[in-house]
């Protein structure tokens, strides 16, 4: 029984990692209707910059602040230079372009910093608590708390502010939004900027646990995509819950289902997502779009 609860906690811990990237993916989808496969690698580049600043002696809080702002600019720059020229092209084109971002940013990190793994400075204390033999670490709780705040804030901005409404509108239909006076391009730029910053926060949260390396986000992408699909692509809170469900299902399934074991664990998020989508095609928290004819 202790093992069961320990694995539940472990599942939540890895779920928090998946959720952090899923959150950035959902944000950019909500704001621009694009799934950015390069999101994790852009975040890795930002995390490297923060680590480099710390190595140069900048205090960690200051370097997080600087790189957070720089990440916003990076997002805007990527949008202007790479995404805008193909924004009218077909979905396939955009997918290939974001895959290109994935390759480019990973190669850039590899070229600048090499392949060795580094210690990313931790934001939360290293310790934890033993509750009836089950180990809960402070960093897991901290990550979950920050993600929850982030998801709630993002959800609220989209739902309750004029800015959020304008961003949703420009993502939904750029031509009609232009007609009602929304500055669509600025909204899309903001969306990319916010997503890049969110991605950086995610990378900074999970960096100490995964160790900083150019490929640190690569294995997570698959799980994050599953989490976002599971939670519903237009719900930040859904991404968080989806990530946690995937993490727990993976952790418990790999251990207690003997025919799965540790080898087939990557199947679990996909299977869970498939089942949920069969029952509810828009995901757990997604909203369906009604088209009137």
């Amino acid at each position: 029984m202790v093992l069961f609860f320990q694995l539940l906690i472990d599942g939540l811990a890895s779920g928090a990692i998946y959720a952090s990237l899923a959150l950035a993916l959902v944000l950019i989808f909500r704001a621009t209707r694009i799934v950015n496969f390069g999101q994790g690698e852009m975040a890795t580049l930002s995390a490297y910059c923060a680590w480099q600043l710390c190595e140069w002696g900048v205090p960690i809080a200051l370097s997080l602040l600087i790189v957070g702002a720089a990440s916003f600019l990076l997002g805007v720059l990527v949008f202007r230079a790479v995404i805008k020229p193909v924004s009218k092209a077909s979905t396939e084109t955009v997918v290939v372009v974001t895959l290109g971002l994935f390759v480019f940013f990973q190669a850039l990190c590899l070229w600048l910093w090499g392949a060795d793994q580094r210690a990313f400075p931790a934001m939360f204390p290293g310790g934890g608590w033993d509750i009836l033999g089950v180990r809960v670490t402070a960093s897991t709780l901290g990550i979950l708390l920050v993600l929850l705040c982030l998801a709630a804030t993002m959800g609220a901005i989209f739902r309750f502010t004029r800015l959020g409404l304008a961003m949703r509108a420009s993502a939904y239909s750029s031509e009609k939004s232009l007609l009602v006076g929304i500055r669509v391009e600025r909204m899309l730029m903001l969306g990319w900027g916010f997503a890049a910053t969110t991605g950086f926060i995610a990378a900074a949260l999970v960096g100490p646990r995964l160790f900083l390396s150019p490929t640190m986000m690569m294995p997570i992408l698959l799980y994050a995509l599953a989490s976002a699909t599971l939670g519903g692509w237009d719900s930040p809170l859904g991404a968080l819950v989806g990530g946690l469900i995937v993490g727990v299902a993976e952790s418990l399934g790999a251990t207690f289902l003997p025919f799965i074991g540790a080898d087939l664990r990557v199947v679990i998020p996909i299977a869970v997502t498939l089942v949920i989508l069969l029952v509810r095609p828009v995901g757990l928290f997604g909203s369906s779009t009604v088209v009137k004819v």
Partner: peptide, 19 residues
């Protein structure tokens, strides 16, 4: 417990080993 290079973390395996 086996691991593959695609596993994001290996804490599940380690918890099982510890138990």
């Amino acid at each position: 417990q086996p691991v593959t290079s695609a596993d994001p973390t290996v804490e599940t395996q380690l918890s099982t080993l510890k138990a």
